[in-house]
Computed example of a mutant assay.
Amino acid sequence: MTHTSSTVALIDYGAGNLRSVANALLAAGLPEKRLIITTNPDDILQAERIVLPGVGAFAACMHALQAIPGMTDALSEAVLKKSRPFLGICVGMQLLAEQGEEHGIHKGLGWIKGSVKALKPNDPRCKVPHMGWNQITLTADTHPLLKAGEAYFLHSYAFFPTDTQDLLAKTDHGGAVTAAVGHDNIIGVQFHPEKSQGYGLRFLSRFLEWHP
């Protein structure tokens, strides 16, 4: 298959929610011929934009990503060296951290300093997993992809960034919870754009037009 520079690579590493994310990208305006669902590192190197979805446990997702020969190297080349726009969703966002503390300590990609730890709400009425619609509050002055609004969450662990400048948005669930992290050409969101109806589709549409 030949690729153009306008392709979006959606990484298929067996970490769930792939089809719903693909459908959401198409609904957000991406032409089907520009969407590549792939396990091939070469597709990552050639794509204009990269999306890493994820559902499940941090360690299992990280191991699945590393199990694809050349995939993490291709991601580093495309995102860190070639500065291609990158979106991590849910556990795909959590993998950006230096480490995750789910079922032991496990190394992440380490692109954003910080760790992923269990949610521990201050309010006993706030259940874990955190599931449902929550308000997004921006912590950065402006980010071209993020707006205030309501998005859908489903998670038991949260990203705790070391540098407050990497915290782009938060929500509240018995205390502040990271909703988005990122810097430069990298963004990760804890919420599920593919489940967030109009808010999520508008977010994905902005990602498709993003030139950081």
Rank of each mutant, 00 (worst) to 15 (best):
T137H: 05
L45V: 01
G104A: 15
A67Y: 11
D163Q: 12
F159V: 02
E48W: 01
A15E: 04
K120Q: 13
T178G: 08
T7S: 14
A67W: 10
K127R: 14
P212S: 11
V21T: 04
N122T: 09
K120Y: 10
G88H: 03
G100K: 12
K170P: 00
A176H: 00
W133H: 00
I36N: 03
N23Y: 03
G92K: 00
G108V: 13
E77I: 09
G104V: 13
S196Q: 02
P41A: 12
G149H: 11
V91H: 02
D172T: 09
L167K: 08
I112V: 14
A180Q: 01
S5C: 05
F86T: 05
E48F: 00
L75V: 10
H103D: 12
Y157V: 11
I50T: 04
G174S: 08
D73T: 14
S6M: 11
P193K: 00
D123P: 03
G14M: 09
A158T: 03
F153Q: 12
D163S: 02
R206C: 11
D184M: 05
T7M: 07
L154H: 04
S6G: 11
M131Q: 04
L204Y: 09
L26D: 00
L138G: 02
I36P: 04
T39A: 09
G108I: 12
L96T: 07
E48Q: 11
E101S: 12
